[in-house]
Computed example of a mutant assay.
Amino acid sequence: MTIRDFFAPFYIHPIVFIFIFISFVTGTFIQLFIILVIVMVHEMGHYIAAKIYNWRINRVMLWIFGGVMETEEHGNRPLYEDLIVTIAGPFQHIFIYIFGLFMSTFGFLPEIIVEQLMFFNTVILLFNLLPIWPLDGGKLLFYILAFYMPFRKAHHWTIILSLCLCLGVMIVQLFILPFTLATFLIFAFLIMENRLEWKRRTYVFMRFLMKRSEGNSEVRSMRPIVVHHTQSLQEVLYLLQRDKKHSIYVTFPNRERLIVDEAECLRGFFYEKKYKKTIGDIAMGSL
Rank of each mutant, 00 (worst) to 15 (best):
G137K: 00
Y249G: 02
W63I: 02
E264K: 09
I191L: 13
I3D: 10
E72G: 12
E218G: 08
I38M: 05
P14M: 11
I12V: 12
V41M: 09
L266G: 03
V123Y: 13
A8T: 13
E72S: 14
I132K: 02
G27C: 04
T202I: 12
M222P: 00
E235R: 06
R267N: 15
A154G: 02
I48G: 01
I159Y: 13
R242Q: 10
K245N: 10
I176H: 12
C265E: 02
K244G: 00
I12M: 08
K51D: 01
T251V: 11
S217T: 13
S232P: 03
N216T: 10
F205S: 07
M149L: 15
H42S: 05
L174A: 14
A188R: 09
Y249R: 04
L140M: 11
I176V: 14
I96G: 13
V172L: 13
S221V: 04
K276R: 15
T183C: 05
D243M: 10
I160S: 05
F91L: 15
N254P: 01
R56E: 14
H156Q: 14
F179G: 02
L126Q: 00
L101K: 14
L32K: 07
R223V: 11
I38Y: 04
Y80W: 15
T122H: 07
I87E: 03
L125C: 07
K199M: 08
T122L: 13
I186N: 09
K139P: 01
H246K: 03
T202F: 12
S221M: 12
K139N: 12
I124Q: 13
V236P: 02
I34R: 01
F142E: 05
F19T: 00
I64L: 14
R257F: 01
P178C: 06
F29A: 05
E111R: 09
R220K: 12
H229P: 00
M69Q: 06
P131L: 00
I3R: 12
R56T: 14
T251K: 11
K273L: 15
M61H: 02
S23M: 04
